[in-house]
Amino acid sequence: MKSITKQKPFKEIEQQLDGFDRLYIAGCGTCTTMTKTGGREEVLEMRERLQELGKLVTGWIVIPTACDEMTEVAVKENNGAIQNAKCILVMSCALGVHKLSTYIDKPVIPALDTLFIGVEDSPGCFQEVCAQCGQCVLGETAGICPLTACHKGLLNGPCGGTDNGKCEVDKEKDCAWTLIYQRLKEQGRLDLMRKYHPPRDCNVAPRPRTIKIT
């Protein structure tokens, strides 16, 4: 599982950093290293571009896993350089940005957009397969999530936009319901597709979602 990110347009980063002449950069050694959006190389490249803009980079770090508890330790160890900066530019996913903001008493600015939680299909190709809806129907849809893989998140079969197995929004994209149909048919379970699914409960776990494991 990976948190999939993409770098914000540099212009937007520049705007967010307006007024901050000294900054510290934090990347992440896990997901954003894997997706080449916030690993060592990207952090160093960012440092260079910001220096070209005339910013002073007081230091940088690639935290092993920005979203976990060890981040606090990493922040403490680098406290000098962080204190020297006016803000922290974060090149992890939003989970890391959130974590860092709890440990650092300075503006924390994301350099990346967090897109989805995905799996790596083939090397370098990530796909969103679950939208964490809180009410899993994979058992009835042959392991393909209609909420995620179908552009409209339909539960009761294909829309009228499906065309030769492709989706109306993109001729390159498979229609989830054609895939579900094919797999259910192979498994001899097409009756599952005939079953009516009532409207989803959109508030199975109301936002903000929290859970306490005891």
Binding site: P158, G160, G165, T178, M193, Y196
Partner: peptide, 21 residues
């Protein structure tokens, strides 16, 4: 609505029957 020229047709017919029901 229904799309009689959809390919493959079977998923479309399943949906058609669900709408009838």
């Amino acid at each position: 609505i229904v799309t009689p020229e959809a390919k493959p047709i079977e998923p479309q017919l399943i949906k058609f029957e669900k709408k009838v029901e």
